[in-house]
Design a protein around this nucleic acid. Structure first.
Lengths: 197, 197
DNA sequence: ATCAAAACGGATGCTGCCTCCGTACTTGGT
DNA sequence: ACCAAGTACGGAGGCAGCATCCGTTTTGAT
């Protein structure tokens, strides 16, 4: 009441119920079948018609972005822990691993992520999250550089790409051992004064 | 004649014509629309029915492998040049670039390539080529290691993965400048006694 | 209880994949 | 030149997924 400016109706109950059901089901399907999973199947299993899914999430990316929202928040939460670390090199390392896990949430995720990172598509719902991640990476890189632990030529964007690549390779089913070797290679690439193995 | 063992008929003329037309058209479509291009469209433009395409090439990978055959030979030819180089480190570098270009022939190519590299699918027509490339890379790596120019911990397979990653990123439309930065990062990762930039 | 706005979902048209099967073509022999 | 046997062809068709339209139902407000 009072001088209330909210002239709008209260949002309908079924909207929220359907949205929640869609998100829940979509997450399960993305986990099981990758980002290319059938949206029709998601709708059916969520107990709604296809049109309802498309009304809530006009594109596959929109649905993906919404499902990813939860995980993004987990990532932000992790940042707090990482920032506690005294060693900026260690912080960067952990941050990269955290990003890589985020990128590996669903098989096939790196592709739409890269498409969004390239930006120039301001309506892509994944673009904003991507740029936030790149900025964050750059922060960690700069801190480590100030401490003399990372080569001066490295930028956050480079390591964003590297983490995305590793996640992509992981998604193709490569063995964990090969991934570790690749991670080591990359780490040798950005670190300063490392032991020439 | 003579003690001829060739009891077989001469292969029909239309078979070869159709095969050639299909390969030619497929290459164009792969170039323009990536490896995911519509096979139906390829068949139609080659002037044959869908069944003919599938009879010649039972799977998309089979067609892809056949189209790639030409380019594979170019790659092998390049090896001769590269082997002429006195410097094994330089040779490795050029070999990696050559592989990367090969992987970037069509957009989307790295995915089926990685799937084949993981092997365990002996009937995948791309598996053999992949393993040949990995072996070749290992040769170059070992030579460079003997010359003390590459870290001892690095293996050919690692750099195969790295080259594949770069090609994948290139395929997503990333700017060439970013790619160069990534290549530099990787090079710093495998080289010994480099100038800590 | 009633109304209008809001949301729903089945039906639909489209594209691409892949296979079956009747037909047409090529080869080798006469 | 012709024929028979075998080979390859290609249109038709079933299936799955995408995305949209529009008549119907649900919902919140009065």
């Amino acid at each position: 009441m009072s001088a209330g400016a909210q002239r709008e109706r209260k949002p309908r109950a079924d909207v929220q119920r359907n949205r929640a059901a869609l998100l829940e089901t979509a997450q399960r399907h993305f986990l099981q079948h990758g980002v290319g999973t059938s949206l029709e199947a998601v709708a059916k299993e969520a107990g709604v018609g296809p049109a309802t899914l498309y009304r809530h999430f006009p594109t596959r990316e929109a649905l993906l972005a919404a499902v990813l929202q939860t995980r993004s928040e987990e990532l932000v939460a992790r940042q707090a822990d990482i920032d506690q670390l005294g060693d900026p090199a260690e912080a960067l390392e952990q941050w990269l691993r955290a990003m890589e896990e985020y990128f590996s949430a669903f098989s096939g995720l790196p592709d739409p992520l890269m498409a969004a990172a390239r930006a120039q598509e301001p309506d892509n719902p994944l673009t904003i999250p991507c740029h936030i991640l790149i900025s964050a990476t750059d922060q960690y890189v700069r801190a480590a550089q100030l401490a003399g632990r990372v080569r001066a030529s490295v930028r956050g964007h480079d390591l964003f790409l590297a983490a995305c690549s590793v996640a992509w390779i992981k998604g193709t089913g490569t063995e964990e051992e090969s991934l570790d070797r690749l991670r080591t290679l990359i780490a040798s690439g950005y670190r300063r004064q490392d032991t020439q193995a």
